[in-house]
């Protein structure tokens, strides 16, 4: 048996009140949730068999469900699946040792929600749209390379040139969309990260940390961006507990 840790929560001045908030929420395998507190922070845990730490899809989803349920009542830092400690004493020591860091992180994410925004494109559709504007350039390249008289070489160069230009245009297109989104979210004063050209179809993978009261504004804004960019598919996920905006490692 070991203690599985689901989340570190802000328990305020009265951690004894946590008990009532935990009622109705069960840990993995129907286990009881309990707390271990130090000053104004608490770890929410359950006592589980080692078998429950096996990363089967169902267990991982169950673990996420517990964190989701906890996030409805607490400001929290979600723990990664598989975070365990053998004893309450060890947990107490860990909370005491990391108190300042945990408190700082909890204050940072208080009243905030995480959202993910993925933007997909249909490569064929985008390529057809973008390549229509580079035919003249390719023709020019053909006139140059044809002087060599080597059609295999010419075809190869033209193919590579076309691919390179389309890639450049796709990147420029993605940057234009990123600029639009960045401008918008800068105005909203949010934390955000962007990865662009993640794959051939996923041109933007963005994460946001927003104030709870900005949620509806975000949904409307993404819907408007979708309307302005019919060649792209916008997929908004969330609200999530702040998995991506916490200081990751504690000892």
């Amino acid at each position: 048996m070991a203690r599985m840790i689901y989340a570190l929560v802000s328990s305020g001045e009265h951690p004894e009140n946590l008990h009532s908030k935990l009622q109705g929420i069960q840990g993995i395998g129907g286990t009881e949730l309990t707390k271990v507190s130090y000053e104004s922070i608490s770890a929410i845990i359950s006592e589980n068999e080692k078998a429950d730490f096996t990363a089967e899809k169902e267990k991982v989803i169950e673990f996420a469900g517990v964190i989701e349920a906890l996030s409805q009542g607490f400001t929290l830092l979600p723990m990664r699946f598989g975070s365990i400690m053998d004893s309450i004493e060890e947990l107490n020591t860990m909370l005491e040792r990391n108190y300042a860091k945990i408190r700082q992180n909890l204050d940072f994410v208080e009243n905030k929600l995480e959202f993910g925004l993925k933007i997909f494109c249909d490569p064929e559709k985008i390529t057809a749209e973008l390549s229509s504007g580079i035919v003249a350039g390719i023709d020019h390249a053909e006139s140059i390379t044809s002087e060599s008289g080597n059609s295999v070489f010419r075809d190869y160069v033209n193919k590579k040139l076309r691919e390179h230009r389309i890639e450049e245009l796709r990147l420029k297109y993605a940057e234009t969309v990123i600029a639009e989104i960045t401008e918008y979210f800068t105005g909203m004063n949010t934390m955000h990260t962007f990865r662009k050209m993640v794959s051939e179809t996923n041109i933007i993978d963005a994460l946001f940390l927003l104030d709870k009261d900005q949620k509806d504004t975000l949904v409307v804004a993404v819907a408007e961006m979708q309307k302005r960019n019919p060649l792209l598919s916008f997929m908004l996920t969330g609200p999530w507990p702040p998995y991506n905006f916490v200081d990751k490692s504690i000892k």
Binding site: L8, T54, A55, F63, I67, P78, M79, Y243, V246
Partner: peptide
């Protein structure tokens, strides 16, 4: 997205993670 977050994100206890495949 959910699996990625729960398995790869969030707070990690350095040296105390136990996970089975």
């Amino acid at each position: 997205e959910l699996l990625d977050r729960v398995l790869n994100k969030g707070v990690i206890l350095t040296g105390d993670i136990v996970i089975s495949v």
